[in-house]
Design a protein around this nucleic acid. Structure first.
Length: 576
RNA sequence: GCUCCCUUCGUCUAGUGGUUAGGACUCCGGCCUCUCACGCCGGCAACAGGGGUUCGAGCCCCCUAGGGAGCGCCA
């Protein structure tokens, strides 16, 4: 969904909080809406936006104002602050944020089926792009030739597509900044390696795996954090030649020189400060010549003009490295935002034992895209409404400021709730897909629609639907305990009477109950439950009359006969 | 080991010094109803603990506990 910011001018919402000692003053002004009066003239300047609000505030002289913020915008753009004082001398800050299109990306490694945590990342990035009228890019980070597989990339694209996500640029659809697989971009990286080497920001490192491990161990043992010791930093040409002559193949390391700390404004966590001493020199090109994550990820973001990098918390500490790298290369630095990771229902990191951890598994289990999306929209993110949202409505309810900093538990109860909602919104055609060939074969075509409408509120997954197909058109499973109880309680007279009423194939539920009532005197639950149990094999489900209409006379007769047989076998026949 | 981050009902969360701490899911009760579900109405249920600061703390500061992340030729 694309919305240009000029046509999408919803009223600005101003929240005003008052401040004072008196309880009489403790009421809260909720919010005030301002329709931008100059919207029709096209471009609206910031001062035009702020003026009516300021006039209002000054007019509201009964209030002591501390802070007044414009919160209409969905994400942080250019921030315009205007400070002034009320007649009471309290300072007021107006903060207007100008909407800017965000170019976002999702950059997975195709080393397996896409994990639900990554799916949420992709989803949030798409929402951020859509809510600002920007672009969403999909980039495959397949630099690890060992683990990356084409089949996983195909599966990833298919699964995300199934979910309903759409990207404007990607490996399957191309785009202006291609190629979109890093394995095909190595040529592009050469110029940047060279630039870093020439500027002295990168150097070859000949340390072996063992040497590095040993060094790390030593540092750890002496209570210091494990960092690259800088062994190869100051190697002279001769030393390098010697190492090379020994057959050592160097990696390329980025040099993090001592200096001021690296600072950036995180979109969700606020200011982040990292001491340069805490960042060791890191590898940007492996011995086999392939690009390391820090490098290719950051360089590609810049080359693809990504404006906002929204990713999981696990990348926070990577960010200063990437910023340093981009600055050294004189490439543009995107805004970064790190939201909390998703954890299992026990608070531990998501893993196999928490059940479905890949999107593929959820899909196979029968979960619907809308259910997953509605759940994710509210996991670690506060949507401004609790009701169901269609995918195309979601961008306007996404807010980067509403992203959480605390880990969010992935809760199946909540997912099931959204699944229920999703099933209720399925079209008949979509429900029909759930039937499968075996189900379709059993149902008379003219009844399909009525059947699906009838049972949908009792269905969560395709298997449930299949069960109802069997109830109405197929064979019943062995009756459960509570069903048996009802059948035995009713006795044979009960079912003989029902069977007699079925002589008329068009007999309604009322016809049946009338006949049984007359014969046995049963009423209420004693009357209906045995009938339900006998005819459907279960004590729950849609309206019995509605089901009877769809069932064939044969089926009904057969089931009553079975109930009769069971009743005769088990019940104590009346002595008279 | 070191650095950083997080902690409000069982769960997802609202909350930016004065709130009867709000909503959603789950659960329970009621209505509807032949049953279950749907729907509607209602209920249970939380500020991790301890110290400060303040007239007043869920919100600010410190400590403790618990959880998470990072410190790779993984991404």
């Amino acid at each position: 969904m694309r919305a240009s910011s000029s046509t999408r001018m919803s009223p600005w919402v101003v929240t005003i909080r008052n401040w004072g000692y008196s309880l009489l003053n403790s009421a809260r002004i909720s919010s005030v809406d301002f329709a931008p009066s100059t919207a029709s003239t096209g471009k609206v300047s910031d001062s035009d936006r702020i003026r009516p609000i300021r006039n209002f505030l000054i007019g509201a002289s009964g209030w002591r104002l501390v802070d007044c913020r414009l919160t209409e915008c969905k994400f942080t753009g250019k921030v315009v602050d205007e400070k002034f004082s009320t007649p009471h001398g309290f300072p007021v800050t107006l903060r207007a944020m100008e909407n800017m299109p965000a170019i976002t990306r999702f950059a997975p490694s195709p080393t397996g089926y896409v994990h639900v945590g990554n799916v949420r990342t992709a989803f949030f990035n798409q929402l951020l792009a859509r809510c600002s009228g920007g672009r969403f890019i999909l980039r495959s980070e397949d630099t690890d030739a060992e683990r990356s597989k084409q089949e996983y990339l195909d599966a990833l694209l298919a699964d995300l597509h199934w979910l309903g996500l759409r990207w404007d640029e990607g490996p399957d659809c191309g785009g202006p900044s291609g190629p979109y697989c890093q394995s095909e971009r190595s040529g592009l990286y050469e110029v940047y390696y060279t630039r870093l080497i020439d500027s002295g920001d990168a150097y070859p490192c000949y340390c072996s795996d063992q040497e590095l491990k040993l060094s790390r161990k030593r540092q750890l043992a002496s209570g210091r954090p494990p960092r690259y010791a800088g062994t190869c930093r100051h190697l002279g040409d001769q030393e390098r030649a010697d190492k090379a002559a020994q057959g050592r193949v160097p990696v390329l390391r980025f040099k993090v020189t001592a200096g001021d700390s690296v600072t950036f404004q995180d979109l969700v966590r606020g200011e982040q400060v990292f001491a340069r001493d805490d960042i060791g020199d890191f590898v940007i090109r492996r011995a086999d010549g392939s690009a390391a994550f820090f490098f290719s990820n950051a360089v590609d973001d810049a080359l693809m003009q990504v404006s906002h990098v929204l990713r999981g918390e696990d990348h926070v500490a990577n960010t200063p490295r990437q910023i340093l790298l981009l600055q050294a290369l004189d490439l543009s630095v995107p805004r970064y935002g790190h939201f909390s990771l998703m954890v299992g229902d026990d608070g531990a990191p998501l893993s196999k034992r928490h059940g479905a951890s890949s999107l593929r598994e959820l899909r196979l289990a029968g979960y619907l895209p809308g259910a997953i999306l509605n759940h994710f929209l509210r996991l670690g993110h506060k949507a401004d409404i609790d009701d169901w949202l269609d995918l195309d409505q979601m961008p306007e309810h996404f807010n980067i400021d509403a992203l959480g900093r605390a880990p969010a538990r992935y809760d199946m109860d909540q997912l099931r709730h959204w699944q229920k909602e999703a099933v209720m919104r399925l079209s008949i055609a979509e429900l029909e897909d759930w039937l499968g060939d075996s189900g379709r074969a059993l149902i008379p075509p003219e009844q399909t629609g009525a059947f699906l409408e009838l049972v949908r509120s009792n269905v969560l997954f395709p298997a449930d639907l299949q069960a109802w197909v069997d109830v109405l058109y197929g064979d019943l499973p062995k009756p459960g305990e509570s069903e048996q109880e009802w059948l035995q309680q009713a006795g044979s007279e009960f079912f003989r009477a029902a069977l007699a009423a079925l002589e008329n194939p068009a007999a309604t539920l009322k016809d049946l109950t009338d006949a049984v009532k007359t014969a046995t005197g049963a009423k209420g639950k004693q009357l209906f439950m045995p009938l339900r149990a006998a005819l459907t094999g279960r004590t729950d489900g849609p309206g019995l009359q509605e089901m009877l209409v769809l069932m064939s006379a044969d089926t009904k007769r057969k089931r009553l006969q079975e109930a009769l047989a069971l009743g005769q076998k088990h019940s104590r026949e009346p002595l008279i």
